[in-house]
Design a protein around this nucleic acid. Structure first.
Length: 492
RNA sequence: GCCAAGGUGGCAGAGUUCGGCCUAACGCAGCGGCCUGCAGAGCCGCCCAUCGCCGGUUCAAAUCCGGCCCUUGGCUCCA
């Protein structure tokens, strides 16, 4: 059975075929103008599941994720902090922030995270090529893509050019030949109106300036869409195997990428287009601009990576997913069930009574069925929820087997452990048996618990028992000192 | 208005590509039992679905066809 994926371009599920030995995967993209929230993390998690599954199936995955560090929203935040003197300062801060958050989510690293600010020469080259070929034209120092020059314009979002013509920034319209044309290069500095609009805080001073670059058309800034074409071509070549992104990017971003890329190269830009559905907060989309978001940092702190990843694996990538207290609680319970079953299997797989072994046919058949089911589910358009269900079936099988009592089928228990580690761990990115997570926190809580008990003994006048507790803590490496405000402690 | 994705039990969410094994998965919540000093975990069982509405095709439809209603999203920065 082979992998099939739903392609936005055709709207249908299609068999996946890599163009070569490697899978060229481009994921769009990282916002570096604000703290990332659970909606961004959903895309990352889904891209990671795809990456992991391809790797599991033996592909060498060449994974690139762009970093858009040139944008009005970034410029708008200049001056919010003293050290944020330029657009680049703000971008640097959030780039680091985003990459940190990604590490917290146990994501496989991309090969490279190219920055727009470091690819302006490539962007200029691409724009020049498009002008030479007659697909783009210069106007007042800006360069626009001529949508009428690309016959298939609209094929991704299934729209006619006429339908798109009615939209567009009125200021730009006078410079364009066709209202649907889009900017490849923008003359001058940042769009002051856009910066003003995105300013979150009151400022006394003048609006901040964005960075500009020299170009054949004068000082200016790259348009939004051209960056992905230029950077993906730079790092992965003219035709990608998979281009992935949030559903909101279908139009205009990805539509325009196709137009400019395919016009320039004459090659198909991406063989598969995957779009991840939105995170819903209540009845609406979770979004930075709506302010109804939960940041990745907060979520990791509050729920932990495994609960979050279980949460993401509980809905298919294409559909919308609801974020509520209930749905996250369900994910927590699912993860706990898996983790406990894993621990149960580990505890019983190497018991002293391993000498008296048995064979549980039903257990073994269940494992084989789960294995086949998991593979089929993942190959079926990455049906993570279904795959997760197989993991939970194994959990139930382990519990049932152990519940029945010794003698145990040790081989089947070990296979269950492998199942959890291979499919839950390697493929879904869950971390089993990671007992160190939260351990330090628990250690502190335990010391405080003992000290509470000791205080009760002291209050009751049982100083011998209180001293004994202090000595025993000290023997463990915890130094206790009694002060006026109660005891304090530190770890040696 | 145009484009897209959806409407399945109290919640959440698979199944629709290739109609029948769907008397609708997995899980959460709820109920009963086992276990248990109590609780939790675990195990066993149960409850809740005429699969948005109407019509059609078929021996057979959640799944195919037509119409309608509703929701969310895109068309402006947006994962």
């Amino acid at each position: 059975m082979t992998l099939s994926l739903t392609d936005t371009l055709s709207g249908e599920r299609e068999p996946f075929e890599a163009s070569g030995d490697s899978v060229l995967l481009y994921v769009c993209g990282l916002t570096v103008s604000d703290d990332p929230h659970l909606g961004h993390a959903r895309l990352w998690a889904q891209a990671d599941i795809l990456h992991r599954w391809l790797a599991h199936e033996g592909y060498d995955v060449r994974h690139v994720e762009n970093v858009t560090d040139v944008n009005e929203k970034i410029t708008a935040r200049v001056g919010e902090r003293e050290e944020w003197e330029t657009e680049a300062d703000v971008a640097r801060h959030y780039t680091n922030e985003v990459l940190d958050q990604m590490r917290n989510l146990n994501l496989l690293r991309a090969e490279v995270y190219p920055r727009v600010s470091e690819h302006v020469p490539e962007i200029v080259d691409l724009v020049e090529t498009l002008i030479e070929q007659g697909h783009a034209y210069e106007s007042n120092g800006s360069v626009y893509f001529d949508v009428t020059s690309f016959e298939e314009y609209g094929k991704l979002s299934n729209q006619e050019i006429e339908a798109v013509e009615e939209q567009g920034d009125p200021d730009e319209r006078s410079e364009k030949r066709n209202p649907a044309d889009f900017a490849l290069w923008k003359a001058g500095g940042v769009d002051a109106d856009a910066v003003e609009e995105h300013r979150k805080h009151e400022h006394d001073g003048p609006l901040p300036e964005g960075q500009t670059w020299e170009s054949p058309w004068g000082e200016g800034r790259p348009g939004w869409h051209i960056e992905c074409s230029a950077m993906s071509m730079t790092h992965l070549g003219e035709t990608l195997d998979i281009h992935m992104g949030g559903q909101d990017l279908v139009f205009p971003h990805h539509e325009n990428e196709i137009a400019q890329s395919e016009a320039a190269t004459g090659q198909r830009f991406a063989n598969h287009w995957l779009h991840v559905g939105f995170m819903q907060a209540g009845s609406e989309k979770m979004s930075s601009s709506l302010g109804n978001y939960f940041t990745v940092a907060d979520a990791v702190r509050e729920f932990g990576v495994n609960v979050l990843r279980t949460f993401y694996a509980s809905a298919e990538y294409r559909s919308q997913q609801a974020y509520t207290e209930e749905t996250i609680e369900e994910a927590r319970r699912r993860w706990e069930r898996l983790e406990r079953a894993y621990e149960t299997a580990v505890e019983h797989a190497d018991g002293a009574d391993a000498l008296t072994k048995t064979e549980d046919g039903e257990f073994r058949d269940g494992l084989a069925a789960a294995r086949a089911g998991f593979e089929a589910a993942m190959n079926d358009d990455l049906n993570a929820r279904e795959a997760m269900a197989e993991l939970l079936e194994v959990a139930t099988a382990v519990n049932r087997h152990v519940e029945a009592g010794a003698p145990y089928d040790y081989q089947a228990l070990r296979e269950s452990i492998e199942f959890f580690e291979e499919y839950g761990g390697d493929v879904l990115g869950l971390q089993f048996g990671d007992v160190t997570a939260g351990e330090a926190e628990i250690a502190e809580s335990l010391v405080e618990l003992v000290l509470d008990v000791r205080e009760a003994e002291r209050d009751a006048g049982n100083y011998e028992r209180a001293d004994d507790l202090r000595d025993r803590l000290e023997a463990l490496g915890v130094e206790v000192e009694d002060g006026d405000d109660g005891p304090t402690y530190r770890f040696d």
